[in-house]
Each structure stands twice: as structure tokens, then as C-alpha cells.
Design a protein around this nucleic acid. Structure first.
Length: 237
DNA sequence: AAATCGGTCAACCGCGACTTT
DNA sequence: GAAAGTCGCGGTTGACCGATT
């Protein structure tokens, strides 16, 4: 194909038809030869990409479902940016599509989640004595994605997260909710007037097993997943 | 109405791994 | 075993579009 003037940019309908018909006849391989045989002035690479990401049968083109979104989020945490591997777990979705979705929808949320998770763990560690490390790890991990700040004051806050009163945090749309709210209330009572003091201590009862009940699946909508944030707000005391 | 900005997504690029000759 | 060809992956770009100023 060298020396020939190759087309770039958006594919035309005719090109799509031509490519599809040749891939169905010759199979998904030898893309350079296939492009030549099909009379397409495209690189083999470009043909392959067009086929894999758009023309291939059984591709889903609609918006991602909540389940897909959660799966992507979870797999990204486990595998990192291994989009091809992640795509294999989501039939009908392409690595490119998932990568784009991650970058435009989920990346920020992941950052927020990490920050909140870290701060939460930090606060737990600095405010409890009877809390074993295993429980803390589990909580900080499983808490991700469920905190939400009652945000009417959010925009006007000009300092770090530790100035946000605990009573203004809420947890929504998950089976954890009521227990967590109670827990936060207890924490708040434990803090008393010392809520700005990260070195203050308090105790509360926590049963990880009880806590974990009903955790199989839950809807993240209406939670941190939709929260706008400013990461300057997430500094520690 | 026009300009600007930000989000989205299809497509491209570079590179390493794998296969074929 | 080496060179050439091909494939697959992840990062990046740029066109497009709607919202905002």
C-alpha cells in the first residue's frame, strides 16, 4: 500500500459496505491484503479498526447500562487500563468504547472515590481505638462510591474537607445507607464539638459481618457517582 | 447571532508482540 | 535464527455538537 494515497478520517457508507462484504468473505485477517482486494484506499489498520469498533456483528451501540458501568469501574480497579481485557468481559462492547467511556464518565469518579476512601480511612484510624485493621480496610474499600455531600453549601465552601460537618454527608441508594447514617451519627456524637480535631478519639460498635449483609448489588445512582467536586476540597487536616 | 468552551467519540499513531517467510 | 509482515493494545487527536457567554 505504500506510495498510494490512503484515505483518512470518517468512513463513508460505501466504504463500510465494501469492507463488510469482504470481511464476511475473507475473514478477519490479512487486513492490508483485504483492503487492497476490496479496492479500499485505506490502510489495513484502519480497516481492522473500523470493523472491530463499528461494523462487526453483535456490537452494542447504545448507552452503557448501570451494570456495565459498575463492571467497568470494578474491572478497571482490578486490571488497570487493560481495555482489551475489560472489553472481553462485556460482550458487544469494544475496548475503544470502554476506554472512551472511562475517560469521559468514570475517571473523575474514580479519583473522587480514592480521595474520599483515603480520607475516610484516615479519619477512622485517627478516631477509633477498638477498630481492627481488617475492618477498616473493608469499610474504606466498600465505602467507595456511596458518600455524598449535601451540596447546597458545597460551592461556597472555601476550605478543606475537614471543615465540612459530618452531618452534611449523606449516603444514598445502597443497603449500607441506614447503618452508615447511624454510624456517622455515632461518630459525630463521639466527636462532640471536636469535629475539626483529627486527633480526637472515640469508639463505636461495628460488626463487619452484619455490615456486609445484602452487599451483592446496589445501585450507585444518586451518590458520589454524580457528584461534582473540587479536589482542593479533599485535603486532609 | 456569533464566539467560546467543554464533553464526547471515532479514528489515528506508535510501539511491542506475535506470526510468517 | 533473522527479517519482514501483521496484529493488537493503549494513548492521543481532532471533528462535531450542544451549552454557555
Amino acid at each position: 500500500m505504500q506510495g498510494e494515497h490512503l484515505r483518512k478520517g470518517t468512513w463513508l457508507q460505501d466504504e463500510d459496505k465494501q469492507l463488510t462484504s469482504f470481511v464476511l468473505r475473507l475473514g478477519e485477517r490479512r487486513w492490508d491484503s483485504l483492503a487492497k482486494l476490496a479496492g479500499l484506499r485505506r490502510s489495513g489498520k484502519s480497516c481492522r479498526l473500523r470493523w472491530m469498533n463499528y461494523l462487526r456483528p453483535n456490537l452494542k451501540h447504545g448507552p452503557f447500562s448501570v451494570e456495565e458501568e459498575q463492571l467497568i469501574f470494578q474491572l478497571q480497579q482490578q486490571l488497570g487500563n487493560k481495555w482489551a481485557k475489560i472489553a472481553r468481559k462485556l460482550p458487544g462492547r469494544t475496548d475503544n468504547e470502554i476506554k472512551n467511556y472511562w475517560r469521559t464518565h468514570l475517571r473523575k469518579r474514580a479519583q473522587v472515590q480514592q480521595e474520599v476512601s483515603r480520607d475516610f480511612k484516615y479519619n477512622m484510624e485517627s478516631t477509633t481505638q477498638d477498630f481492627n485493621q481488617k475492618s477498616i480496610d473493608m469499610v474504606s474499600k466498600d465505602y467507595t462510591g456511596i458518600f455524598c455531600y449535601r451540596d447546597s453549601e458545597w460551592e461556597t465552601m472555601d476550605s478543606s474537607i475537614d471543615t465540612l460537618p459530618l452531618s452534611n454527608w449523606e449516603l444514598r441508594s445502597s443497603p449500607y445507607e441506614s447503618r452508615i447514617l447511624n454510624w456517622i451519627a455515632e461518630l459525630q456524637n463521639g466527636y462532640g464539638e471536636k469535629e475539626h480535631d483529627c486527633n480526637s478519639t472515640g469508639t463505636f460498635n461495628y460488626n463487619p459481618q452484619e455490615f456486609a449483609e445484602g452487599c451483592d448489588s446496589w445501585d450507585c445512582s444518586g451518590s458520589l457517582w454524580e457528584m461534582n467536586y473540587d479536589d482542593t476540597l479533599f485535603s486532609k487536616c
